[in-house]
Design a protein around this nucleic acid. Structure first.
Length: 339
DNA sequence: GCGTCAGATCAACTCACAGC
DNA sequence: GCTGTGAGTTGATCTGACGC
């Protein structure tokens, strides 16, 4: 088993005995009375004893609670963009309403607000239970800031539904919060090289541009890197900002918004050569269309038409070395003449 | 409609290099 | 030596074109 899987498993392997009912919640939660026949003093000392046991259990592992979702604050580091498509959230909400919450969220005690919690993951489940007016099942663990970030990242990694730019932004937020590169690597389960690329893109593309484009799930590292490189040019960035300011930009789907922004960044100004692939038909001397040539930035593709004999293609391939030789001689002759 | 194929794109990885 | 970065490679996956 991989290190990553081991870590994830360890987050969920709380001993059975540590699972708590409403009777043994920590002091921060509304407590159920332990019995009216006991004296107030006895009850108080028992609560204190239970709390002490809980503190030890929280420190050593995890306990599962049912808590009021309004007491749960999100992690200070956003790991995903706001869901612009609420259909999946509605499906989650419906599932919880029908079958109950099957997977608990992970929380820690809020470091600053006593009686409140901070979630490492499960923000959507918190929102769903809040809207349904029911309590949320949560694993309560004692987590440092770094452990919170790593748990947050590790929970998202196996689902593989974070887009490249969401991961890049998450990496930047982690680093901006003062965590080391190794925390970024652990949280996102990436190596040094990949972490470096994520951060390079996140820091090259202005936040408002990323927000305007959205998660763009179909756009991967390569195209985001190209985009980041393009908008280093202030003129290109200006064109992108103008494009995202257009009303119709926001109406597009997120991947289409990226393409529109990319197109704006690459759009040549007057006088610059177009980078769109250039496609031209090739005709024989008698006027018959025999092929077409598609010239892109990195390659030139010659396609022989279907109606042309296949032996012509074989003939052409056979003649290529001689043609190139003739071309080389002609080129060198021209250069010596020009010199 | 279904299966096959080629091309495009992706994440993950290795390696080399530069700066400290 | 450690860390960050960029270039290149590889295998997996997705998508559209094509033939049946």
């Amino acid at each position: 088993m991989s290190k990553r899987t081991d870590t994830i498993k360890s987050l969920f392997t709380a001993p059975q005995s540590s699972a708590l009912s409403a009777d043994n919640m920590p002091a921060a939660l509304p407590r159920v009375s332990s019995g009216s026949v006991r004296s107030l003093k006895d009850s108080f000392s028992e609560v204190e004893k239970e709390n002490e046991e809980l503190r030890e259990r929280i420190a050593s592992g995890a306990v599962i609670l049912e808590i009021d979702p309004s007491l749960v604050d999100p992690s200070p580091l956003a790991d995903r963009f706001r869901d612009q498509d609420d259909s999946s959230f509605e499906a989650l909400k419906q599932s919880i309403a029908q079958r109950g919450q099957e997977v608990p969220i992970l929380v820690r005690e809020h470091p600053e607000a006593k009686g409140r919690y901070q979630s490492a993951y499960g923000h959507r489940r918190v929102r769903a239970t809040r809207e349904l007016g029911i309590s949320v099942k949560a694993i309560l663990r004692s987590l440092s800031d770094e452990a919170l970030v790593v748990a947050q990242g590790l929970e998202n990694a196996p689902r593989e539904d974070l887009s490249f730019i969401e991961r890049a932004s998450f990496a930047m937020h982690i680093e901006d919060a003062g965590h080391s590169r190794s925390v970024v690597q652990d949280a996102l389960s990436v190596d040094r090289a990949e972490a470096s690329k994520l951060l390079a893109v996140a820091r090259s593309v202005p936040a408002e541009v990323i927000q305007a484009i959205g998660k763009a799930p179909k756009v991967g590292r390569g195209r985001w890197q190209s985009f980041a490189e393009l908008i280093k040019d202030s003129a290109a960035l200006k064109r992108v900002r103008a494009a995202i300011a257009e009303p119709k930009f926001a109406e597009r789907e997120t991947d289409a918004r990226f393409l529109a922004a990319f197109s704006a960044a690459t759009r040549p100004s007057r006088g610059e050569p177009s980078k769109e692939p250039d496609e031209k038909p090739v005709f024989s001397v008698s006027g018959e269309k025999i092929a077409h040539v598609r010239q892109a930035e990195r390659e030139l593709k010659l396609t022989i038409d279907k109606n042309v004999s296949t032996t012509f293609a074989a003939f052409l391939v056979d003649q290529l070395p001689a043609l190139f030789d003739a071309f080389s001689k002609k080129s060198s002759g021209q250069e010596s003449t020009e010199a």
